[in-house]
C-alpha cells in the first residue's frame, strides 16, 4: 500500500494553500480582464453573470460566448488614416496620456540612475566631513510623502509658471518634483549596491593608472549595472503609477500623465464598465509584463530599499 509520508502531506497542504492564496490575489485582476472583453449588453445585466456565455436555455454554452472588443475599441478609437499603418489610434489615453507618462517615467528614471549612481558611489567609497549626517538626512527624507509638500510645490509651480521663463513648462517642473521624491531612496539603494563591489577593484584600477573617474566608469560601472538597472525599473514604475502630483502640479491637460487620464476617463464612463476595464488593462499591462520578466531586479531593489525604511 502507498502511504505518503507526513512530510509529503505537509508539502501538498502548503502548495494547496499557496495556490488558493494566489487565486484570491488574482481574482480582482481576472475579473477586470473578463469585464474588459464583455459587450455592452452583458455589462448591464442584472443580476450580473460572470461569463457572457449563457443562452436562454442553458446557463453555460462555450459556443455561445459573446466576447467583444468594444471596450478596447472605445479606448483606442482607431480611425483610418493615410499614415504608415493606415490606422491611427485617436483615443486620448493612447494619443496623449500614455506618451506623456512614458516621457516622464523615462526621463525621471534616467536622471535618477545618473544622480543616484553618482551620489551612491561617493557615499560608498569616500569618507568626508558630514558623510553620516548627509546619509541619515537623505534617509529621513525618503520617508517624507509627497502629500504634505504638495501645497508648497503647487504654489512654487504657480510662481514659476507666471515668471514665463524661456524653455520652461510644467513638464520640466514635474520631472524635477519626481526627481526630488524618488532620488533619496535610490541613493540608498545605489550605495548598497556599490558596497557589495569589493574596494580592491577600484584600488587595482587606480594602481594600473586609471583616474578616479576612469575607475568608476570602466571598472565599477559595468559591475554595478544590474543594480542601476533595478533603480531604473523601480523609478520608472513609481513615476508611471503616480497620480496626485501629476494631477495637481500640471496645469494643461495635454501635459498630464496617464493616471490622470484614467481618472478623467472614469468620470466619463460611469456605466460603461467594459471601457474603464479595458483602459485599466492597457495602462497596467506594460508594467506587469516588465515586472514578470525583471522581477529579480525589482526584488533586489525593494529589499535593499525596504530594510532601510
Amino acid at each position: 500500500m502507498f502511504t505518503p509520508s507526513p512530510r509529503r502531506v505537509e508539502s501538498w497542504l502548503v502548495n494547496a494553500a499557496l495556490i488558493l492564496i494566489c487565486f484570491f490575489a488574482l481574482v480582482p485582476i481576472a475579473t477586470t480582464v473578463l469585464i474588459s472583453f464583455k459587450g455592452e449588453r452583458d455589462i448591464i445585466r442584472n443580476p450580473p453573470n460572470i461569463l457572457p456565455c449563457d443562452t436562454p436555455e442553458r446557463a453555460f454554452d462555450i459556443r455561445e460566448c459573446r466576447w467583444a472588443l468594444e471596450g478596447y475599441r472605445r479606448v483606442l478609437s482607431p480611425k483610418p488614416s493615410n499614415g504608415l499603418l493606415s490606422v491611427a489610434l485617436t483615443g486620448n489615453i493612447v494619443r496623449v496620456y500614455i506618451p506623456n507618462s512614458f516621457f516622464y517615467a523615462t526621463t525621471t528614471a534616467l536622471l535618477v540612475v545618473l544622480l543616484a549612481g553618482m551620489a551612491g558611489y561617493a557615499f560608498s567609497r569616500y569618507r568626508f566631513r558630514g558623510h553620516r549626517f548627509l546619509l541619515v538626512s537623505i534617509l529621513a527624507i525618503t520617508g517624507v510623502p509627497l502629500l504634505t509638500n504638495l501645497l508648497a510645490l503647487f504654489q512654487m509651480g504657480a510662481v514659476l509658471r507666471k515668471a514665463q521663463l524661456p524653455f520652461y513648462d510644467d513638464r520640466l517642473y514635474l520631472v524635477l518634483v519626481y526627481l526630488g521624491f524618488f532620488l533619496p531612496l535610490s541613493v540608498w539603494i545605489a550605495k548598497g549596491f556599490f558596497d557589495t563591489i569589493p574596494r580592491d577593484l577600484d584600488e587595482a584600477a587606480l594602481i594600473d593608472g586609471c583616474s578616479p573617474l576612469g575607475a568608476l566608469l570602466r571598472v565599477i560601472l559595468p559591475l554595478a549595472f544590474p543594480g542601476l538597472m533595478a533603480i531604473f525599473l523601480l523609478t520608472f514604475v513609481n513615476v508611471w503609477n503616480e497620480f496626485i502630483a501629476g494631477y495637481l502640479l500640471v496645469a494643461k491637460n495635454e501635459f498630464k500623465p496617464v493616471m490622470f487620464g484614467l481618472y478623467e476617463f472614469l468620470g466619463q464612463n460611469i456605466i460603461n464598465l467594459q471601457v474603464v476595464a479595458a483602459a485599466c488593462i492597457l495602462i497596467a499591462l506594460p508594467i506587469v509584463v516588465v515586472f514578470i520578466f525583471a522581477r529579480r531586479a525589482f526584488f533586489a531593489a525593494m529589499i535593499e530599499g525596504a530594510v532601510k525604511g
Binding site: 490575489a25 485582476i29 503609477n241 497620480f243 484614467l262 497596467a284 508594467i287 522581477r295 525589482f298
Partner: peptide
C-alpha cells in the same frame, strides 16, 4: 507563487481602486 503574488504590488493605486470599484458597482458589479 512569488511572481503571481506580487503582481498586485506593481499596479497603481488608482487602478486598484478602479478594479475594486468595478466589482461592486451597484447592480452590475
Amino acid at each position: 507563487y512569488v511572481t503571481l503574488l506580487f503582481i498586485p504590488w506593481i499596479i497603481a493605486d488608482i487602478i486598484v481602486g478602479i478594479v475594486f470599484r468595478l466589482l461592486v458597482v451597484p447592480d452590475y458589479g
